Measured scan of single mutants.
Amino acid sequence: FDIYVVTADYLPLGAEQDAITLREGQYVEVLDAAHPLRWLVRTKPTKSSPSRQGWVSPAYLDRRL
């Protein structure tokens, strides 16, 4: 999967189903980028939180090589 970094805090609107909150600087794996406005991502697990999966706007993501 492609690795992206979150460029700004992402707080989903209440109406968005299956969306997750992301923090600036967080790394995520993009699982599904087929839709231009919503990408399915999975967060990297940390010592304090397990990995999470949900939909985010790709405008908040920047690809890492």
Rank of each mutant, 00 (worst) to 15 (best):
F1C: 15
F1M: 09
F1D: 07
F1A: 09
F1Q: 08
F1L: 10
F1S: 08
F1Y: 14
F1W: 11
F1T: 08
D2C: 14
D2Y: 14
D2I: 10
D2E: 12
D2Q: 11
D2F: 13
D2S: 09
D2K: 09
D2P: 15
D2G: 11
I3A: 05
I3M: 08
I3H: 05
I3T: 08
I3Y: 10
I3F: 08
I3L: 11
Y4H: 03
Y4E: 00
Y4T: 02
Y4N: 01
Y4R: 03
V5C: 08
V5G: 02
V5R: 11
V6Q: 00
V6T: 04
V6A: 07
T7F: 04
T7R: 10
T7W: 05
T7H: 05
T7A: 06
T7N: 11
T7S: 07
A8C: 11
A8Q: 12
A8V: 09
A8Y: 07
A8W: 05
D9I: 03
D9W: 03
D9T: 05
Y10K: 03
Y10L: 05
Y10Q: 03
Y10V: 10
Y10S: 04
L11P: 15
L11I: 15
L11D: 12
L11E: 14
L11K: 11
P12G: 07
P12M: 04
P12D: 06
P12N: 07
P12S: 07
P12C: 07
P12K: 06
P12F: 07
P12V: 08
P12E: 06
L13P: 12
L13D: 15
G14A: 15
G14T: 12
G14P: 15
G14K: 11
A15T: 15
A15N: 15
A15L: 11
A15S: 15
E16V: 08
E16C: 10
E16P: 08
E16I: 08
E16W: 09
E16A: 09
E16Y: 08
Q17F: 12
Q17T: 14
Q17E: 14
D18M: 07
D18F: 08
D18G: 14
D18W: 08
D18A: 06
D18H: 08
A19C: 09
A19M: 09
A19Q: 11
A19R: 08
I20P: 04
I20A: 03
I20M: 08
I20R: 02
I20T: 03
I20V: 06
I20S: 02
T21R: 11
T21S: 14
T21N: 09
T21V: 12
T21W: 14
L22T: 01
L22P: 00
L22E: 00
L22I: 04
L22Q: 01
L22W: 03
L22F: 04
R23V: 11
R23H: 12
R23I: 10
R23L: 13
R23C: 13
R23D: 06
R23A: 08
E24G: 07
E24Q: 15
E24C: 14
E24F: 11
E24A: 15
E24L: 10
E24V: 14
G25H: 03
G25A: 02
G25Y: 02
G25Q: 02
G25W: 02
G25E: 01
G25T: 02
G25S: 02
Q26P: 00
Q26Y: 03
Q26G: 03
Y27A: 06
Y27C: 11
Y27E: 14
Y27W: 12
Y27Q: 08
Y27N: 04
V28N: 00
V28L: 03
V28T: 01
V28K: 00
V28Q: 00
V28R: 00
V28F: 02
V28D: 00
V28H: 01
V28S: 00
E29I: 13
E29N: 04
E29S: 05
E29R: 06
E29W: 15
E29M: 10
E29Y: 14
E29C: 12
V30P: 00
V30F: 01
V30H: 00
V30L: 09
V30R: 01
L31G: 00
L31C: 03
L31S: 01
L31M: 07
L31E: 01
L31V: 07
L31R: 02
L31N: 00
L31A: 01
L31D: 00
L31I: 12
D32K: 04
D32M: 06
D32P: 00
D32G: 02
D32N: 11
A33T: 09
A33S: 14
A33N: 13
A33L: 05
A33C: 15
A33R: 14
A34P: 04
A34D: 10
A34L: 09
A34Y: 08
A34E: 10
A34F: 09
A34S: 15
A34W: 07
H35K: 05
H35L: 07
H35Q: 08
H35F: 07
H35W: 06
H35N: 15
H35R: 05
P36I: 05
P36K: 08
P36F: 04
P36L: 06
P36R: 06
P36Y: 04
P36D: 09
L37S: 11
R38K: 10
R38M: 09
R38W: 10
R38Q: 06
R38N: 05
R38T: 05
R38S: 07
R38Y: 09
R38L: 10
R38I: 06
R38A: 06
W39I: 01
W39K: 00
W39C: 05
W39Y: 03
W39L: 01
W39S: 00
W39F: 03
W39P: 00
W39D: 01
L40S: 01
L40G: 00
L40T: 00
L40D: 00
L40N: 02
L40Y: 09
L40F: 08
L40R: 03
L40V: 02
L40E: 03
L40I: 02
V41W: 01
V41A: 01
V41P: 00
V41T: 01
V41S: 00
R42P: 01
R42S: 04
R42D: 01
R42A: 06
R42F: 02
T43W: 07
T43F: 05
T43K: 01
T43G: 01
T43P: 02
T43V: 08
T43M: 04
K44M: 15
K44D: 05
K44E: 10
K44C: 15
K44T: 12
K44F: 15
P45T: 08
P45A: 14
P45D: 09
P45G: 13
P45E: 12
P45F: 05
P45C: 10
P45V: 07
P45S: 10
P45I: 05
T46V: 05
T46E: 10
T46F: 07
T46N: 08
T46P: 03
T46M: 07
K47Y: 10
K47T: 12
K47V: 12
K47N: 13
K47D: 15
K47H: 12
K47S: 13
K47W: 10
S48K: 10
S48G: 14
S48N: 14
S48W: 11
S49A: 11
S49M: 12
S49L: 12
S49K: 09
S49E: 15
P50Q: 07
P50G: 08
P50N: 06
P50E: 10
P50Y: 04
S51T: 09
S51C: 08
S51E: 07
R52S: 10
R52M: 14
R52Y: 12
R52P: 02
R52F: 10
Q53C: 12
Q53F: 08
Q53Y: 11
Q53W: 08
Q53P: 03
Q53K: 09
Q53T: 15
G54K: 01
G54L: 10
G54N: 02
G54Q: 03
G54Y: 09
G54C: 05
G54M: 08
G54I: 09
G54F: 10
W55A: 02
W55G: 01
W55T: 03
W55P: 01
W55D: 01
W55K: 02
W55V: 03
W55Q: 02
V56M: 05
V56A: 05
V56I: 10
V56W: 01
V56E: 01
V56N: 00
V56P: 01
V56K: 00
S57D: 15
S57R: 03
S57P: 15
S57V: 04
S57C: 09
S57I: 05
P58Q: 03
P58V: 05
P58T: 04
P58C: 06
P58R: 04
A59V: 11
A59E: 13
A59T: 11
Y60S: 04
Y60P: 01
Y60K: 03
Y60A: 05
Y60F: 11
Y60I: 09
Y60C: 06
L61S: 00
L61H: 01
L61P: 01
L61M: 03
L61D: 01
L61K: 00
L61N: 01
L61Q: 00
D62T: 15
D62W: 06
D62A: 15
D62K: 15
D62S: 15
D62C: 13
D62L: 13
D62Y: 08
R63T: 08
R63M: 11
R63S: 09
R63I: 13
R63W: 10
R63P: 11
R63F: 15
R63Y: 13
R64M: 14
R64E: 13
R64Y: 15
R64D: 13
R64T: 14
R64A: 15
R64S: 13
R64P: 15
L65D: 14
L65C: 14
L65P: 14
L65W: 14
L65T: 13
